[in-house]
Amino acid sequence: MSKLVGTETVKRGMAQMQKGGVIMDVVNAEQAKVAEAAGAVAVMALERVPSDIRAAGGVARMADPRIIEEVMNAVTIPVMAKARIGHIVEARVLEAMGVDYLDESEVLTPADEEYHILKSDFTVPFVCGCRDLGEAARRIGEGASMLRTKGEPGTGNIVEAVRHMRKVQAQIRKITVMSDDELMTEAKNLGAPFEILREIKKAGKLPVVNFAAGGIATPADAALMMELGSDGVFVGSGIFKSENPEKFASAIVQATTYYTDYDLIGRLSKELGSAMKGIDISKLSLEERMQERGW
């Protein structure tokens, strides 16, 4: 009996097992353990969380492999890590290290402003950001096994993640009622691969899991994204930039599972201490907006 690794089912299936969960950014083993104890479904090992990347400026690259290894040794839940957009070698290095999921991420400074990584070439699955259905379909076309909204990372401001999730959902609804002869023009307008669009039209949904990311700062934010149809949430700077990370992390996990239990979310939100401060998106110049990275 043959044994196949790195198949589409295996790569997409890994993301399906993360549904309804929270993936947390961590910068060391200690934070990874806090995240695991709070009920995170996975951790994203980074050198800096997005808000610190934003503050530090300069070129943001793949994390130091020592940090990633330290995190992998500290927890039994899956460990994800970020490679720069188009940086094939960073991705191969992370794959060789045994990282469970790669994020080809706009949070890091892109290595290639024209091409994304051909993710179907890899055994390790990838998650990628998207702002609309065209971008989602292009990433699926390249072999992404999981999607997330781009949002606006490191801002603690949910508005862009909401915009991107609503946009993708609305565009899916739109194509499901289109006639077949309208679909090619829509593919052209969206810049989306026709075959993938046809698959989405037929199924009425994306063929991969779609999480929310980029600006989730409170339990209510996480619940909002679930209510809007997210399959789960990534929380970056929100947890370890808050006053009480343990409590905060646990509250976000619970709010994600019980996202329509508003009494509970109210109780969870009490006495959490202040959330990260946050940034008004309109105060960011176009160059400062990470979501503009990639295409």
């Binding site: 009996m1 043959s2 690794v5 295996v10 899956p78 045994g98 390790v124 699955p125």
Partner: peptide, 12 residues
Amino acid sequence: FGRQRDSFETTL
């Protein structure tokens, strides 16, 4: 069986 890269499908 190891980490995600070792995940697989087969028939039984």
